[in-house]
Design a protein around this nucleic acid. Sequence first.
DNA 1: CCGCTATCGTACGGACCCGAACGAATCCGC
DNA 2: GCGGATTCGTTCGGGTCCGTACGATAGCGG
Lengths: 167, 167
Amino acid sequence: MPDQHTLEETERATSDRVGHLALNYPAAHALSSLYRAANAARAHLTRTALRPHDLTWTGFLVLWLLWIWDRMETRRVAESVGISKATLTGVTSTLVRRGLVERLPSLQDRRLVELTLTPAGRELMVVLYPQFNGAEAQLVAAVPGEALATMTTSLRQIVTTAEALED
Amino acid sequence: MPDQHTLEETERATSDRVGHLALNYPAAHALSSLYRAANAARAHLTRTALRPHDLTWTGFLVLWLLWIWDRMETRRVAESVGISKATLTGVTSTLVRRGLVERLPSLQDRRLVELTLTPAGRELMVVLYPQFNGAEAQLVAAVPGEALATMTTSLRQIVTTAEALED
DNA sequence: CCGCTATCGTACGGACCCGAACGAATCCGC
DNA sequence: GCGGATTCGTTCGGGTCCGTACGATAGCGG
């Protein structure tokens, strides 16, 4: 158990504390579950698949993206991974230092920098990604297929809503 | 758009790259959506509700927990929030420095430290939490009630599975 | 051409985050 | 009682993570 209190106890204590307020409880429970699930999944995948290769979660996301798309501008990578450009600079430096990623200054627009995998980076992903996906499958094994599809759809709607709210 | 590529393009590119491997795609898509949604929600809630009060996401989670439960041992707080004890030490120090949280050394077991909100911390939560919950409601507004319930159930199953896998 | 503006990636400071190691306190087998 | 094992919170080092500020580059109106 991640908590010394059961789910029921927590909800009762919450009700005792804030029950007099007009709150949206389904939203609160959904987002609480969302954050806990994402945190648990990230921690488990990191321990199971990434740590043996001495990779961080974010570093892996960058490698995966470059594996799928061959080369990308840094601003696109940051946007896709969901981190700031400033953070990506540091993450990229780490991956470059380990010989997995290469920086390619753009010739057309000299402000831009593109990223690509080195051969070593590609070899790593060929071995690593099937292991990673196996761990992913383990995590969702208890969720029936239909519920998983519903969940995926709802999560994407939340992403869309969040993006719309940023304007 | 968080990505210069549409979802369909990404899935096609993925298929081109790893289509010859025996992978669990529903699991991969579900966890990708899970991580993106959690990231987007966290970023939006931080900007909307937390930043005006100069609070961090993790700091807010700690405050919320102490608000609901009055006082807790640090090890329980770390477990509930999903961070390591080492991280909690730093987060707690920040909150103590801002006068929102107090450390209470346990008299029964002198290895333990309990945390509790100061009056200022309680006053902050009374104002802040309704704002936070309002932003939460905005995020899930596009998801039908039934789908939201299904999503919450599935997310909790993933949390349970992840915990079981840690043994 | 030539300022004005926008956008790029990066440097910096501060906060979070973890694993490992540590001193202090407690527990437990004998 | 008491010595070894366990558990506690903290410290430390290294790696994200962000907002801000910056120098460099590009686009654009006049």
